[in-house]
Computed example of a mutant assay.
Amino acid sequence: MTTPAPGPGPAPAHASLDGLAMGDAFGDGWFTRSDELPEKRLAAREPRPAPWEWTDDSAMAFVLFAHLGAHGEVRPDGLAREFAAEYARDPGRKYGPSMHSVLRRIGEGEDWRTVTTEQFGGQGSFGNGAAMRVAPLGAWFGTDLPGAVEQARLSALTTHAHPEAVAGAVAVAVAGALAACGRGQQAPQRAEFLREAASYTPESDVRSRLLVAAHLPAHTSVRHAASVLGSGKQISALDTVPFALWSAAGHLDDLTETLWQTVAGWGDRDTTCAIAGGIVAARTGTAGLPADWRTAREEIPDWSGWEPTGGSGA
Rank of each mutant, 00 (worst) to 15 (best):
G78L: 14
H67M: 06
E39P: 04
A44C: 06
E82P: 00
P38C: 12
D56G: 03
L79I: 10
M60H: 11
W52P: 00
L37W: 11
E36H: 11
A43R: 10
A59I: 06
F65S: 01
L37V: 10
R75T: 13
V74Y: 07
P38N: 12
A59W: 02
V74C: 10
A61M: 02
R33P: 03
W54P: 07
D56N: 04
A80E: 03
P49Y: 04
E53N: 07
M60W: 02
R41V: 04
L68Q: 06
L79Q: 00
D57S: 02
H71N: 12
L42M: 14
V63I: 07
D77Q: 13
A59D: 04
H71P: 04
G72M: 04
D35M: 08
E82K: 04
L64Y: 03
S34C: 08
R41I: 03
L37N: 14
R81G: 05
K40L: 15
A50S: 13
S58E: 03
E73I: 10
A70T: 14
E73W: 09
L79G: 01
R81P: 02
L42K: 07
R45H: 14
G72P: 09
F65M: 05
R45V: 05
G72V: 05
F65L: 09
R75C: 02
F62N: 00
L37M: 12
R48I: 11
V74M: 07
R48C: 12
R45C: 05
W52H: 12
T55P: 04
R81E: 08
P38F: 08
L64I: 11
D57M: 00
V74A: 06
W54R: 04
W52D: 03
F62H: 12
P38G: 13
F62C: 09
D35W: 15
A50N: 08
G69P: 00
R41A: 15
L42P: 01
W54A: 02
K40F: 11
H67F: 00
A80F: 03
S58C: 04
F65T: 02
E39K: 10
D57P: 00
R48M: 13
H71D: 13
P38D: 10
H67K: 08
P76E: 13
P38T: 10
D56P: 06
D57T: 06
S58Y: 01
W52A: 02
S34G: 08
E73P: 07
P49L: 11
R45G: 02
A50G: 12
G72R: 08
F62M: 09
D56H: 06
S58P: 04
G78W: 01
P76M: 03
K40M: 12
V74N: 06
E46Q: 15
P76V: 03
A50K: 05
A59E: 12
P49D: 14
A66H: 11
E46W: 08
E36A: 15
H67G: 05
E53D: 11
D77H: 11
D77I: 02
R75L: 15
E46S: 13
L68E: 02
